Amino acid sequence: MLKVDVEKSLKAFHLNTRFECESSGVIALFGRSGSGKTSIVNMLAGLLTPERGEVVVKDRVLFDSSKGINVPPQERRLGYVFQEDRLFPHLTVRRNLLYGWKRAPKTERRIQLEQVVEMLGIEALLERHPGKLSGGEKQRVALGRALLANPSLLLMDEPLAALDQARKEDVLPFIERLRDEFDVPIIYVSHSMEEIVRLADTMVLISDGRVEAVGAVDDVMGRLDLRPLTGRYEAGAVLSARVSSHDNEFALTELEFGGGTLRIPLLDVPTGTLLRLRIRARDVSLALTPPADISIQNVFKATIVAIGSETGPQIDLRLEAGGAAVWARITKRALMSLKLEPGREIYAMVKAIAVDRHSLGRVTGPDRFLSGE
């Protein structure tokens, strides 16, 4: 288990955070800038000392104010990937990679240089210096250096924030492989919902130094009461679906989920692949009767199970489609004119091109997934 129960005053900001979860897979710390995410990670790493509390990683106590325990950072056996690469500029890529590996106890060097070089595709970079690398290449090397320290837990603090979208798409598959192939639990800090949905198993939602919710990503994203914190613009449903067929003529892939069939732009993945995907509430329209003669490719029957209480002109509705939760955002005028209420059966409509491809992932286990693109 991972247990964090810490308190710290930082100038005018007071952090009082407590959560427990399984120390496996990817645990995402999500919240707005200034919510305390980086401070929590720094306390895990030992770079910031809590005034009170306890930090336990896999039954190993790293900090306990009541017992006077405060393990030094270099003895915590945690890897850290920062927002900026922080590579040693005077060392080659090879020597940067081996820096942490040489400091790991010989008996615990289960991850080797050759494995990491192959996974990250950086063999051609080994004799270069960091100044000769692109931003994406630097982050791949930083990932490798942290992994070669053979840590019991890997900390990633906004590792993609300094990269543009194209470079992010280059690095994300390597983070997915790291997650799936090395069995090292990861604390992943981000304010990008796309990254969280694509990578994480568990979400810890943080606001003003406090934990507001802990749970599976789809559960936390599905809670109406957390919409002010998870973000109304990005709000939506996280669904599991299986690739059933490909339509090469029209460049579409068909997915089967609890509520029926979804068609999305063509994916290069085998049939039978289990995917996790996000459909934003703003991309779902509703009809009382089966729509006909429309361009929208995805229409499925659903039941309204909850209606939000937003004060503005729009409102969110939670739908259930064959056991799958789906969200729709409509105007209050539409809500009134259609006389929508909980228990009402309706038809949900989603454009094929509306499915969020940046957060699309493939399930590799009960709760894990990697890119399907």
Rank of each mutant, 00 (worst) to 15 (best):
Q297G: 08
N298A: 09
N298M: 11
V299P: 12
F300V: 14
K301S: 07
K301T: 14
K301I: 06
A302I: 02
A302Y: 09
T303S: 07
T303Y: 08
V305K: 15
V305G: 05
A306H: 13
A306W: 05
G308L: 11
S309V: 06
S309L: 12
T311C: 10
P313D: 01
P313V: 00
P313E: 03
Q314L: 15
Q314H: 04
I315D: 00
I315G: 01
D316W: 00
L317G: 11
R318W: 14
R318P: 06
R318H: 01
E320A: 03
E320H: 03
A321C: 11
A321E: 07
G322W: 01
G323C: 04
G323A: 07
G323E: 09
A324H: 03
A324E: 15
A325V: 15
V326K: 07
V326C: 11
W327D: 12
R329A: 05
R329K: 13
R329F: 01
I330L: 06
I330C: 14
I330N: 08
K332Q: 10
K332P: 01
K332D: 04
K332C: 01
R333W: 01
A334N: 03
L335M: 10
S337D: 03
S337V: 10
L338C: 00
L338I: 02
K339V: 07
K339Q: 14
E341P: 02
P342K: 08
P342F: 14
